[in-house]
């Protein structure tokens, strides 16, 4: 089974790397979906089937579709690829890449410096346990999450409304 883990990990990493370097937004989004699906497989391997399912349904499904919609609404066409080309010069990405590499090296150093736990067993946690936990111990957090979603709904509705913006731009501040 370890082989499957490393394979999916490799897919996730490569797909993610493709996301951040790709010029075409829709292609990049498809790579992101691939990456998310790989992560879902990894969830499944770690004994978290509900998480894997949610990852596929909500992340790879709903959220990514939302982004696709927005890309389609912006409808920038092929010129964006050229634009991304000019924006992604080596001097633009070299610095951030170095910084991230440094951060990664530090994280790996920290993780590997800790004691390797001898107990490599994992526990299967099913949807039932999660459901019980959510609606007993975490019920207040669930309520808060629902409030957050409601606020997000209202906010998104308000922000996405197309108001007529007068040429002076003096009013209609959000």
């Amino acid at each position: 089974m370890n082989f499957v883990f490393y394979l999916t990990s490799a897919i996730a990493v490569v797909a993610t790397a493709m996301v951040i370097f790709h010029k075409n937004a829709v292609h990049a989004l498809l790579y992101l979906v691939t990456s998310l699906l790989a992560v879902a497989v990894i969830f499944y391997q770690f004994g978290a089937p509900l998480a894997a399912a949610l990852e596929v349904i909500i992340y790879a499904g709903a959220i990514m579709v939302l982004i696709v919609f927005v890309i389609m609404m912006l409808n920038q066409g092929d010129s964006t690829v050229v634009q991304e080309q000019t924006w992604l010069q080596p001097r633009t990405w070299l610095g951030p890449a170095l910084l991230s590499a440094l951060l990664l090296a530090q994280l790996i150093l920290l993780v590997s410096s800790g004691k390797i736990s001898s107990n490599q067993t994992f526990h299967y946690i099913g949807p039932k346990q999660i459901g019980i936990a959510l609606f007993s111990h975490y019920v207040l957090a669930v309520e808060l999450a629902s409030m957050l979603l409601l606020a997000g709904l209202v906010g998104a509705f308000h922000l996405a409304r197309r108001k007529k913006i007068d040429s002076e731009g003096s009013s209609n501040a959000y």
Binding site: T16, I20, P96, S100
Partner: peptide, 10 residues
């Protein structure tokens, strides 16, 4: 870290 790098460079 990949995500962070992407945030900074795009």
């Amino acid at each position: 870290c990949l995500g962070l790098a992407g945030l900074m460079m795009r």
